[in-house]
Nucleic acid binder design. Sequence first.
DNA 1: TAGTGGTCTAGACCACTTG
DNA 2: AAGTGGTCTAGACCACTAC
Lengths: 249, 249
Amino acid sequence: MAIERHVPVAEQVAILLHGRIADGTYAPGDRLPSEAELADELAVSRGTVRSALAVLATAGLIVRRQGDGTYVTGVMSAERSLMHVMWEFTRAIELSGHVPSIRVVSLQQRPATEKEAAALNIGLGEQVLSVLRVIHADERPAFLSTNVHPANLFTQAIDQLDGTIEMRRFLQRYCNREIVCGDMDVSAAMPSAEVRDALSLGANVPVLLVESVFYDADGRPLVLSTSYYGGDKLSFHDVRRSYPWAKTR
Amino acid sequence: MAIERHVPVAEQVAILLHGRIADGTYAPGDRLPSEAELADELAVSRGTVRSALAVLATAGLIVRRQGDGTYVTGVMSAERSLMHVMWEFTRAIELSGHVPSIRVVSLQQRPATEKEAAALNIGLGEQVLSVLRVIHADERPAFLSTNVHPANLFTQAIDQLDGTIEMRRFLQRYCNREIVCGDMDVSAAMPSAEVRDALSLGANVPVLLVESVFYDADGRPLVLSTSYYGGDKLSFHDVRRSYPWAKTR
DNA sequence: TAGTGGTCTAGACCACTTG
DNA sequence: AAGTGGTCTAGACCACTAC
């Protein structure tokens, strides 16, 4: 028998409301029913409705105005931060209207370099799993990406691993770990000959270089990722996350 | 008599706990008192304590583990997203250990171009306020930035505006608007002669180009910002914001 | 098993916007 | 004045972890 997963009520409410926005029951510009009405209709407490609405508001799907009401914005994507782009290349490519595919160049286990050991918080020379891939958009190479994981996260033999799945799912499936945050460096660079080749670029075309370390909820490094992007630009949406009380005087 | 600002209890609790973490009362690695103990000590409800802790957890200052406890992480900066970097250049420069300064190149009012009108959701040819600035780090130019605002946000005469203050404060002070989210494009580019000059760059050095539109809580565009960054790399920290239920199956 | 954080409820009052 | 979202409370039960 499958594990019975307890699904929080607020989550179910959020999914339900998300569905109503997605299918146009609540269309962009519409005002949603009040918290009290929703609580009444769904037979849950007002606090539960508020939790669900807070999720949708944070995602940008709705806007809430005290004394007025809750309105549908028309924004539908909740996963457009730069971090999401970097850990879910294919979704980012889909969102921009192209067809993604992942090709594995190499997948190997080897000792960590000094830089990798420092970033992943492991001993120098400890084993790492290194995955080099090219992510295509409509059969044209877009990203050249190297993911380096601490090998001790994995229990499977290396030839059991499927390198064509997205980094985040890869970590979920094989390590049962969830990416929660990341430190990222973005810079402009002239590509080396290898990178230029892999991305089929002309001469004298700069690329974006994104170097990231992603962590789980406990702050453990899961992956050091180095990605070159040869396309036009990376687009994303960001929402404020500073302290609400951090007013500028 | 000054306006009496009502300060939510949860916010006061968050500030208090933030202070205890900052001053080492709760040191990195320490376990915080339980929610019940904090609620008891501060004479507030457990829900209020939870709200405060949620803010600190989102900022990354603490980690919470069900059945175990709440722990201090050692991470102190809550404002390191790329969006914050782009709207608070000087803070980003400070965080990287340098001394920032802002120099205004020009500040003028003129009709909007087609691109500006589209981005700012105003009519073509409506007036905009355009601010061109160079942001220095330790007397070396780091960013060349143009901010274009809808002129109708401003009531002051143009010569009353102080262009040396940060964009976010600028909007707060003169328009009473708060930046809440933004759409951003990041790309690598070869700088034009003017940009190369302004940033004192050598030949054949690529720059980062960040084009952003920032919005207030109601989705109104406040500014179209175009920034060139001539330094090594932009570093920032990002926290997951996808739907908690958006599990990858 | 005791104690932690996670969720939900029902009710109250406040701040704000709209008519 | 009526109705909205924003905040806070007190209490309950559950899921999980450490001992």
